[in-house]
Amino acid sequence: MANPATLSAAVAAADAIPGADPGGPRGARPRRALSRGNVFLYGTLLVAALYYALPLYVMIVTSLKGMPEIRLGNIFAPPVEVTFQPWVKAWGEACTGLNCDGLSRGFWNSVRILVPSVILSIAVASVNGYALANWRFRGSETFFVILIFGAFIPYQVMLYPLVIILRELGIYGTLWGLILVHTIFGMPILTLLFRNYFTSIPEELFKAARVDGAGFWAIYFKIMMPMSLPIFVVATIIQVTGIWNDFLFGVVYTRPENYPMTVQLNNIVNSVQGVKEYNVNMAATLLTGLVPLAIYFVSGKLFVRGIAAGAVKG
């Protein structure tokens, strides 16, 4: 301790006796990188990450191999000879029981289902949530409870009644039928999401807008919506992944020519003609998962930006 100035900050901080060292600790507080807690924490994270990453690794590796290589049986080995043939085949040539134009048909069906479903369900649910949060009407609480209750009823109960309803409406088997179904099933959770978000916006803003002469729609479009970008992004993520990954409704409510990508994928993987082409199956699966993945990457950034923008609103 003869010359404290030459010692490292960490030692000085640890050994400082009040009054003994005229300077005392200064500067950034030293951190120990490898405490026991840290080792445990990062160890757990690493194991968890491996657990999720390993199957993905196997899929990617397999999809890049040719069939002879796969038959060797070592699923963890990286491909000796990288080939994109399985991906091309999965997209455009793989056969289901009915046709042989691969996943592309399902992809475009899915897009045609996804876009209107997401827009429609979010539009309706956000207006619902806004009305429930700000324009309390007689029975609005009851309405809300019933709506939320809908979220807890198992889908299977409603499958067949909905088939009948759609048939009576004359849209059974069409894309619009499926879009309607997705909109209905998204309603409880999305309404809850939007209602809670709008409730957290100070009520005085809403009152000020009313004094300023804005009506129901003006307040929604000019005050509420611009302040709610984060929740719209969250709702979009939920809906895009939910609807894209949906299999059950796709199978039940559409005809084969309108099958979404997930159903097409199933039909390719389970098709019983010829040998099982694992590489094509893996590529097809990865292709199907690409859209939700892309949404996470793109909107994840937007999402964080939205929240940050909200924080400085003051």
Binding site: P202, E204, L205, K207, A209, V211, I223
Partner: peptide, 16 residues
């Protein structure tokens, strides 16, 4: 409210 000829100022400012 808009037809009453009133203006209101809130505690939390309530600026958009």
């Amino acid at each position: 409210p808009k037809d009453r000829g009133i203006g209101m100022v809130f505690q939390s400012y309530a600026l958009y």
